[in-house]
Amino acid sequence: MSLRAVDATGVAHEQAGAGARIVSLVPSITELLFALGLEPQIVGRTGFCVHPRDRVRNVPKVGGTKAVNVEAIRALQPTHLIVNVDENERGTVEQLRTFVPHVVVTHPQTPHDNLSLYALLGAIFDRDKEAQRLAAMLEARLHEAASRAFAAQNVLYLIWREPWMTVARDTYISAMLRLVNWHTLPDVQGGSAGAARYPAFDFDRSPWLAGVDRILLSSEPYRFTQAHCDALKRDRRVAGKRIELIDGEMVSWYGVRAIEGIAYLVKQAAAA
């Protein structure tokens, strides 16, 4: 069996037949499945799986990424369930594993990991050519980013408020930002003892904020708006820092969206 068919937990998957019935609990993976030409085999998705907008609406919803409707999935009789380490609850996945024959676990942590993600799904669902086409497009974007010089920036990437939350450096988001020489603060690794991958912080008690050049307010998971941006610009605690909105899908969605996301970040950094 090809090593490309081994998922993030080390489980090897045989090639699925034409009758595969796929439920995806990962928004960016759902978009990738469409890009691989698997639309006829996608039988379930979460309410957060919104791309491609004109086609995904025909696929039944099975709850959210964490608030999953187990019985709705059971009724769809899937042969394959696709989940993600960060986005789905382990207990729920184990419950679904009792009746879904094949559970494919994904965990891309860097933009380059999308290459193995394309290969994994291409191998399982007999879409090798489509996967190779996407890989060529991604590699071109990665090469473009690597061949350009960007001014180094320390950035605070906000994903939530009340409490304020950001990202550790071992997240996919932080790895995407590093492609354009943007480095997230605080300088912490979520895998280290006592650290969170998405840490909360206090503007009044975070001395590392002094080193931040740019504050990015993401459109997801919290939907920051221009009103939030304007309010933060009036906050004396961050005076002198560049504060702006950023498209969270372009930065945090892996899969096929990474191709467009890298181009988006290159354009943002070039305009700085």
Rank of each mutant, 00 (worst) to 15 (best):
R90Q: 14
T92Y: 05
V93P: 08
E94M: 12
E94A: 08
Q95P: 08
Q95S: 14
V100W: 00
H102Q: 15
H102S: 14
H102L: 06
V105K: 09
V105L: 10
T106S: 14
P108L: 08
Q109T: 15
T110N: 11
H112M: 05
H112T: 08
H112A: 13
H112K: 11
N114K: 03
L115E: 01
L115D: 03
S116F: 02
S116M: 01
L117C: 08
A119H: 06
L120S: 05
G122V: 04
G122H: 12
F125E: 10
R127A: 14
K129V: 11
E130H: 12
A131P: 09
A135W: 01
L138S: 00
L138V: 00
A140R: 03
R141A: 12
L142M: 07
H143N: 13
H143G: 07
A145Q: 02
A145D: 07
R148I: 14
F150A: 01
Y157I: 11
L158N: 10
L158H: 11
R161E: 15
E162P: 06
E162N: 15
W164C: 06
W164N: 11
T166L: 01
V167L: 01
A168M: 03
A168R: 00
R169I: 08
R169P: 05
R169F: 03
T171E: 07
Y172W: 11
I173P: 07
I173T: 08
I173D: 06
M176D: 07
L177H: 02
L179Q: 13
L179M: 06
N181Y: 10
N181A: 10
T184W: 00
L185F: 04
P186R: 01
P186G: 05
V188G: 08
